[in-house]
Every structure is written in C-alpha cells, then in structure tokens.
C-alpha cells in the first residue's frame, strides 16, 4: 500500500512538473513583444550584434531555447532545460535564477516552517481542549475567532500588522530579513535580529492559521472521542492525560497530518503577499517582484521552486504517514 501510494504520488508529481513547465513555456511564448525588444536592445548595445542576433541571444540566454526552431523543438529544449535544473536567468538582476533561489529560499523556508509549526501546535492544543472540555467558553471563542480569520485574507492580516505594528508604532522593522549592519553568522545578535525581522511575517501566518487548525483538530478529536476505544480506555482506568494524548490526540491527528502539506502549499502561495508587504527577501517577494516587472526568467524559475516545494511536502507526508498510522502499513507488513 505504501509502495503503491508513493508510486502514484511520484507519477502525479512528474506530471504536475511537466504540466507546470508547459504553462511557463506557454507564458514565455506569449511574452509581450516589447519586453523582448527591450532585452534585444540591451544586448545589441553591449555586444554590438544585429537586432535579430540579439533577439536570438535573448531567448537562449533568458529562456533556454532558440526562437528560430519549431514550436515542438523549442518545447522539448525548454522542458529538458528545466528538468536539468536550469531555471533560466533573471532579466532584472542579470543572474541565474538558481543563485537567487539559493539566497531567497532559506528565508522562506525558515519563516514558513516556523509559522506552520507554531500555528499547528497552538491550533492543535486549542482543538483538543475544545473537544475534550465540551461546554466551556473556549469553544464559542475559538469558533468566532476562526470564522473571523477565515474571512480575512492574507493581505488584510499582513497589511494591518504592517500598518500598526511596523509603520505606525515602529515596534518592528519595515523591511528586510536582518539588520544590514550585521554580518550574517551564528551569533546571538544576528539570530535575534533575524527573529525580530521575521516576527511579523510569522505572526501573519500564525494568526491566519490557528483557527483553521483548531477547528480541524476539534472536529477530528470530537469524532475520535465517540469511538468505543476511548470509552474502553476510560473503563480501564487510564489517566485522563494518557487518554488525551495517546488516544484522542494521537488518533485524531492522523488525518490532520496529511493536511500539513496542503497547508504548506497555501502558505507558499500566500508568501507572495506576506513577503511583499514586509519586503522580506524570500521566494514570494521575488516572485511578486518578477510578476509586476515582467521578469520572465525569474518568474518561471521561482514558480518551479514553489511547485517543487509543494511536491516534496506531499511526498514527505506520504512517507511519514505510515509511521504515524500503523494501519497504513497493512500491506507491506505482510
């Protein structure tokens, strides 16, 4: 069953990548003429070549194929390039996208993983408590909070935090991932500066996601609580704490874990907004810069990184799933 699941996931991942590459190829093929003209003009100037040659060079340099080949050949060239890990070149920064990724990705991963874990942990705790202690003030409170944050899109939360806590009150920095005057390294001042700069982006995600996780976990835990084995555990005189953790929590989290990957996907998509509001130099920030300045090379490259991230997260969930749910090991155990 695991093998089958993972094979299926890998196939799906492959086709998703292929499909995404086709989309970006389609986009690149539809670049507005003026963008190419500008590029060609720059190349003509710096290399002293003819306009046609410059245009050729622009295509090869930025998008990885030659524009005078047939559509099919271009497509194949393009796809092969992408699958080889050559993600193109940024028009604006004039460097390979890979080198931008190397700088931007760690920041995004840092902020997203911290946000995901914090939101998930707090939400899970609230959800379990809501299911366990049924008639308390917690339930209506968290439910109201969740439906409020559900109605506030990422940009609302991010903008409000930025406006009040950074721009008006000045409690948090306006931009960047760390204090520019510090040299990056593993020493306390730098780490504190990094956390300080990441605080609001992380807070945006966490505020948005706590309610979501709380409700999901509450629903799952409430249905586990009705299971016979929970009642049986009580009859065996197990301690409440043991039942809440090893029984309700453990079993209720199984279906929820699978959603971590999906949620990470949303967050990667949302990073375009959050990182732009806080001018936080991650993947999302560069992606939205690339989109608004029509930097195609960068746009397509980062798009792949985002897709790849989601695919890997899904794969990771598929692999760890059998570790947390023995029932998923069924076939392979025999």
């Amino acid at each position: 069953m695991i093998a089958q699941r993972i094979t299926k996931r890998i196939l799906l991942s492959f086709f998703t990548l292929l499909f995404s590459a086709s989309i970006t190829f389609f986009l690149v093929n539809n670049i507005p003429g003026n963008v190419i003209d500008v590029l060609a003009a720059q190349i003509m100037e710096s290399y002293g070549v003819s306009y046609d040659e410059a245009k050729q060079m622009a295509y090869t340099y930025y998008f990885g194929y030659e524009s005078n080949k047939s559509l099919l050949e271009r497509y194949i060239d393009y796809i092969t390039n992408i699958f080889r890990g050559n993600l193109g070149t940024s028009i604006m920064y004039r460097v390979p996208v890979n080198s931008i990724v190397v700088h931007a990705l760690p920041w995004t991963l840092f902020v997203l993983s911290l946000s995901l874990l914090t939101g998930f942990a707090i939400g899970t705790l609230l959800g379990l408590l809501m299911a366990w202690r049924r008639k308390t003030f917690l339930d209506p409170l968290v439910t109201a909070y969740a439906s409020f944050t559900d109605a506030t899109p990422d940009f609302v939360t991010a903008m409000l935090l930025f406006m009040f806590l950074a721009a008006r009150l000045g409690w948090f920095p306006l931009k960047g991932a760390y204090d520019e005057s510090l040299t990056p390294g593993f020493y306390p001042a730098f780490i504190i500066s990094v956390l300080y700069h990441a605080a609001l982006p992380i807070l945006s995600y966490v505020i948005e996601h706590i309610g979501f996780w709380a409700l999901i976990v509450k629903g799952s835990a409430a249905s586990v609580l009705e299971e016979d084995f929970v009642k049986a555990a009580e009859a065996r005189g197990l301690h409440e704490r043991r039942i809440l953790t090893a029984y309700v929590g453990r079993v209720a989290l199984i279906p929820v874990i699978a959603m971590l990957a999906i949620q990470l996907g949303y967050m990667l998509g949302g990073s375009t907004i959050v990182e732009t509001v806080f001018t936080y130099p991650g993947i999302g920030y560069f992606f939205s810069q690339a989109s608004s300045t029509l930097d195609f090379g960068l746009m397509q490259g980062l798009f792949f990184i985002i897709i790849l991230g989601i695919i890997l997260a899904n794969l990771a969930v598929d692999i760890i799933y059998p570790l947390i749910d023995p029932r998923a090991r069924r076939e392979s155990a025999r």
Binding site: D228, F229, K231, A232, A233, A246, R327
Partner: peptide, 9 residues
C-alpha cells in the same frame, strides 16, 4: 463491540 475497544495505533 469489544472489537473496537482497542486503540488502533
């Protein structure tokens, strides 16, 4: 329904 009395994990 003691069959369901055991924790599946």
């Amino acid at each position: 329904a003691a069959q369901n009395s055991l924790n599946p994990v």
